[in-house]
Design a protein around this nucleic acid. Structure first.
Lengths: 187, 187
DNA sequence: TTGATATTTTGATATATATCAAATCAGGTT
DNA sequence: AACCTGATTTGATATATATCAAAATATCAA
C-alpha cells in the first residue's frame, strides 16, 4: 500500500480525512501470470495500479492482437474510454507476470470525487498527466521512425526487454515483430 | 457568450454562484485573420474557445510547419503541455479567418477550481474529454491509412475543406500535401 | 532427454507514402 | 486585364515498413 500511497501523493496530496476515505477504497489482488483483469466488450470498472509485476493492455485488429500499453513499475493503468464513458471496452487487460495489483472502482472513485474536492482535484491531475503522456506518445508514433521509438523505449524502460516478449513490444511500438527483430539486429 | 455557456454547461453544469464567477472570468477577442494567439517558446496562459472563425495549432519540425489541430465550430483548444505544465510551448496558434475567440487565463481557472468544487469537476471533465479525443486520434494515426483518415475528417467536419487550405489539412492528417492531393483525386 | 509449442530471426517481395521537381491553377493587387 | 504570389496538382523515383514464408531458437511439460 505504501507504493500506492506514494504514487497518489506524488500527484496530489490529501488531508487526513480524504486520505483515509480514498486509500481505503482501493482493493488489492495477488494474481498469477496471464490473469484476465478486463475482457473485451465488458465495461471497465477499475483504475489499476501495478505494485509489482506487469500488465498488458491490448485489443484485436483484424484477428491480430495490438498491444496498446504495457504497465509496470509503479504505474497506473486503465481502459480510458470504457472507464470514463461507461461503455464496453475494445481493450483486454492481462498480467504478463505474477503481479500485485491495486484497483479502485469507478463508483467509489466518482462518489469520493463528488464528496471531496481534494479527490476531484487528484482525479483531475491524474487525467491531466495521462493526457500529457498521450500527447507525447502521439508525437512519437507520428514523427519518429520505428528505430527511434525503440530507442526511446529502451531509455524509458531499460528492463522491459528482459521481461516482456518481443512480440508484445513490437505491437506496442507500432511495428511488426519482423521489423522489430531487424531493428534490434542493426544496432 | 451564449455559445460558450452552452458548451460549458454541456460538459458540466454550474450552480448560479459558480456560473457567475466562472463565466465572468472569460475574456473575449475579435481578431483579424492571421492573428497570433500563441507564439512558440512562450508559456501558454489560456484555454480558448472558438465562437466563430478558425484557429490553427502548429509547430515546426525540420523547418516545416506541422499542423497539430484545427479548431473551429464551438471547440475548445489549448497548448496542453504548456498550459498544464507551465512550460514553454513548442506550439504556435494563429487564426485562419477573422474570429471571435474567448479565453480564460490559467491563474483564473486554477484559482476558481481551487475555490469551487464544481469548477474543479468541470475542469476534470474537460480534460477527460480531451484525453478521449486524444486516444481516438492516436488510433487513427497508427492504424488507419491516409485515405481513411481523410474520409474520417470529411465525416467529422464536412465544411473544413472549404475553409482551410489543403496544405494545413495535409499535415493535420499526417501526410504530405502531394499525398493528400492524390487521395482527393482518387475518390 | 525428447518432443511439442511458442518465440524470434532471416529472406524475398510488395506497398503506402515521402521526396524532389515541375507544371498548373487561384485569388488578390495594381 | 495582367501580374504576382501562394496553393494545388502531376510525374518520377526513393524509402521505410508490411507481408508472406520458412528456418532457427527458446521454453516448458512429460
Amino acid at each position: 500500500m505504501d507504493a500506492l500511497k506514494k504514487a497518489v501523493f506524488g500527484i496530489s496530496p490529501l488531508s487526513p480525512i480524504e486520505e483515509k476515505a480514498f486509500m481505503g477504497a482501493w482493493k488489492c489482488w495477488d494474481l498469477e501470470k496471464d490473469h484476465v483483469l478486463l475482457r473485451e466488450k465488458m465495461v471497465s470498472d477499475y483504475i489499476y495500479f501495478v505494485d509489482k509485476g506487469i500488465a498488458r493492455i491490448f485489443y484485436h485488429k483484424n484477428d491480430k492482437e495490438i498491444t496498446e500499453w504495457i504497465a509496470m513499475d509503479q504505474q497506473f493503468f486503465l481502459s480510458i474510454t470504457s472507464f470514463f464513458q461507461r461503455s464496453p471496452s475494445h481493450l483486454s487487460i492481462h498480467t504478463l507476470e505474477p503481479a500485485r495489483i491495486y484497483g479502485i472502482h469507478h463508483t467509489d472513485f466518482m462518489s469520493l470525487a463528488d464528496r471531496y474536492h481534494e479527490v476531484e482535484r487528484l482525479l483531475r491531475k491524474m487525467v491531466t498527466g495521462s493526457l500529457i503522456l498521450s500527447q507525447i506518445r502521439m508525437d512519437s508514433i507520428q514523427f519518429e521512425t520505428a528505430y527511434q521509438r525503440y530507442e526511446r523505449l529502451l531509455r524509458t524502460y531499460p528492463e522491459i526487454i528482459q521481461r516482456v516478449p518481443l512480440m508484445y513490444i513490437a505491437s506496442f511500438l507500432g511495428v511488426t515483430l519482423e521489423t522489430l527483430s531487424r531493428i534490434r539486429s542493426s544496432r
